[in-house]
């Protein structure tokens, strides 16, 4: 901005100073502190941020270039933090000046595709209008395309999306998310998307230690904590739960913790003896976790499935 007021392009640029002053450093620090694991994702985001920062410096110096394509695809298993990272991405792009507002509009197929002829286009446009100036996050994007039904209205939504992704590159960034294999199939069937999406980011599964760390962080956010027995039981729980079906990384852990809190409340209630201090009210211990069905071989429905 100072370049414009001075009426001439600056001769040099201090990237480190820009990095701090634009607020990018702050977002990346937040990212590091709040998100456990995900090293390759953080690396990709850092690279993208560096590219955009350099691009901006080049523009300030008057080195001609066109606006970069920022549409992205996030692939990874459920519960690996795709939505959370998309939120951070919106903030990052806003601070770098590539998005005017920096909000996140999260949608799925239901929000884009209509139920009868002529219903899809207005619905998709409505969503796009809301997302202008921010990030449009399409969760499980591959559901938009249903190859087995040629009269499916998803195709119409895809066409409108492609058009807007091309014509309104300055106005919004589209992030598509989903499982890796199905997203690959989706992109193969819709080559238009592949060429319009510049950044493919893969989200790896969390390791056991990372999940334990995430669990501790989640509990801390709710003013709970583990005692030693609880921590050991959770480590065992994670290893067992991973082997069972419908494992959804951090989301499974969050649900497990919710149920553990329930059991803890019940345990405190039934033990009933005497006054409880804050310590007792906020400690998750071994029996709260050990009571989970995971230790008994999984959910009933899953056992039945396995038997068949």
């Amino acid at each position: 901005m100072t370049a414009e007021t001075a009426g001439q392009a600056p001769q040099t640029v201090d990237l480190a100073a820009q990095y701090e002053s634009s607020g990018v450093a702050e977002v990346l620090r937040e990212l590091d502190a709040e998100l456990i694991g995900l090293a390759p994702v953080k690396q990709r985001i850092r690279e993208t941020a560096a590219l955009l920062l350099v691009d901006r410096a080049r523009r300030d110096m008057g080195l001609a270039q066109e606006a970069p394509t920022l549409h992205m695809s996030f692939t990874g298993n459920p519960g690996t933090g795709k939505t959370t990272v998309a939120q951070k991405m919106a903030g990052l792009l806003h601070r770098l000046g590539y998005l005017r507002k920096g909000h996140l509009v999260s949608v799925t197929r239901d929000d884009l595709v209509g139920q009868y002829i002529g219903h899809t286009a207005p619905k998709t446009k409505e969503v796009l209008k809301k997302a202008m100036g921010g990030v449009l996050f399409i969760d499980e994007a591959y559901y938009l395309y249903k190859p087995d039904n040629e009269r499916d209205y998803g195709q119409e939504a895809i066409e409108i999306l492609l058009q807007v992704m091309e014509n309104n590159r300055d106005d919004l960034v589209v992030i598509m998310a989903g499982y890796a294999d199905r997203m690959d199939k989706f992109f193969r069937a819709n080559p238009g998307f592949r060429s319009r999406i510049a950044h493919h980011v893969e989200f790896p599964d969390y390791g056991d230690a990372e999940l334990a760390e995430i669990a501790a962080q989640m509990l801390e956010a709710q003013n709970y904590r583990f005692d030693d027995g609880g921590r050991a039981a959770l480590a065992e729980y994670i290893a067992l739960r991973r082997a069972q079906p419908h494992f959804a990384n951090a989301r499974s852990i969050r649900n497990a913790l919710d149920r553990a809190r329930l059991r803890q409340a019940n345990r405190l209630f039934e033990s009933g003896g005497g006054p409880l201090d804050a310590e007792a009210l906020s400690t998750i211990s071994r029996e709260d976790i050990r009571a989970s069905r995971v230790f008994g071989g999984g959910l009933d429905v899953d056992r039945k499935d396995a038997a068949e």
Binding site: K101, P122, L128, K129, K130, M132, G133, G134, N168, D171
Partner: peptide, 17 residues
């Protein structure tokens, strides 16, 4: 022309309409 637009964040949506 269409419905009133209640939850926009950016004028671009209005300009498109």
């Amino acid at each position: 022309w269409g419905n009133p637009m209640f939850d926009l964040r950016d004028p671009k949506g209005v300009m498109m309409e």
